[in-house]
């Protein structure tokens, strides 16, 4: 009996393990969850007769932890800007030289010489956006383009604020409000920051990633938020306005890159070239509501994306601030502040 069970188990295990064979004509993509346009994938599959699997991760760090251990079986990942520079430094990405590819000419020149991949030898733009905050203009009628709404909340917003549950997003916003540098290790400045955050936290209701539900259900009237998510929230609560605070706000870009030792390297390169086509890049944007960094894609995009105040920045807004990865000393400081804040 027992041996039967065990042998059945082994047989079953072996049978299952053969199911993801590394056959030709496949491509395994590891992207942020619910971020890949199904239309784009179908189009790619039909054009090249390649079977694509897509899996999702919830954070850059989850993806990094898996990739670092090796043998994930994935070909393509879509890390954020700072994560690209970490992964290049750690030798986790394949140098595929997208800058020599056929469609590279479509990449908007301002996204070519970026700090995380100067000249684009490893990665190409997927989508980019900003992280600022969104506020209900019927609840708060004053000037919204200042971080004071978060750190010195006016009476009507006290207890009605959601912050992202993200160490870097919260700390960077605080540093901007105080006018200090990012990746800061100045103890005096960090002390002031800690005091500011602890004081401001009393006015925050929640710290959570599910910003859309919080806003549309009326739990909060202001939320730190990504621009695309703000647009989705506005569709259900039209009085929401996305702020471009004068103290500055975060810019980010997710980039398509190929893992070192990718089992389907050639297919992966095909995909990288494929998404630099304006028509295909537009499919990406239409699905996830962020800008894509490919020139000439606008005519193929949904009209509402072209006019959305979350995506089209006003001329007087400060430039988005792309924050490189901080060194371990700074991260250790940030950890202590974060634990103190949330103890």
């Amino acid at each position: 009996m027992k041996t039967k069970i065990i042998s059945t188990g082994l047989a079953l295990g072996l049978a299952m393990s053969g199911s993801v064979a590394l056959a030709e004509g496949t491509l395994n993509i590891y992207n942020w969850g619910n971020y890949t346009s199904p239309e784009l994938i179908t189009k790619f599959e039909e054009a090249f007769d390649i079977k694509v699997t897509i899996d999702g991760y919830d954070s850059n760090e989850t993806m990094l932890a898996k990739v670092k251990q090796g043998n994930t079986g994935y070909d393509i990942v879509v890390p954020g800007d700072y994560m690209i520079s970490i992964m290049i430094e750690q030798g986790l990405l394949e140098k595929i030289d997208p800058n020599t590819m056929e469609n590279f000419g479509n990449v908007d020149p301002k996204w070519v010489d970026v700090y995380w991949d100067p000249g684009r030898s490893y990665s190409v733009p997927w989508q980019w956006g900003t992280t600022s905050f969104v506020v209900d203009s019927e609840v708060y009628k004053g000037d919204i383009n200042t971080l004071a709404l978060i750190f010195d909340a006016p009476p009507e917003l006290k207890g009605r604020i959601n912050m992202l549950n993200d160490m870097n997003d919260v700390i960077n916003a605080g540093l901007r409000y105080l006018g200090y540098d990012r990746c800061n290790s100045n103890r005096e400045e960090l002390k002031a920051l800690t005091e500011l955050l602890i004081r401001a936290k009393a006015d925050w209701r929640t710290m959570d990633y599910s910003t859309i539900e919080k806003l549309t259900s009326g739990d909060v009237d202001l939320s730190q938020n990504w621009n695309g998510a703000s647009m989705r929230a506005r569709a259900q609560r039209p009085s929401l306005v996305y702020a471009y605070p004068k103290e500055g706000f975060t810019g980010w870009m997710d980039n398509v890159a190929v893992l070192k030792g990718a089992p389907n390297l050639e297919n992966a390169k095909l995909f990288v070239n494929f998404i630099m086509d304006p028509e295909n890049a537009a499919l990406i944007s239409n699905f996830a509501s962020y800008a894509n960094g490919i020139t000439g894609s606008a005519p193929f995009m949904k009209p509402e994306l072209g006019s959305a105040p979350e995506i089209v920045m006003p001329a007087d807004a400060p430039a988005p601030d792309f924050v490189p990865p901080c060194n371990q000393e700074v991260v250790d400081f940030y950890n202590k502040i974060w634990t103190k804040l949330k103890q």
Binding site: S59, E61, T62, M167, N168, Q328, N335, W338
Partner: peptide, 8 residues
């Protein structure tokens, strides 16, 4: 978070 953004 130690295995995520805290990197410890």
């Amino acid at each position: 978070i130690q295995f995520g953004s805290s990197r410890n």
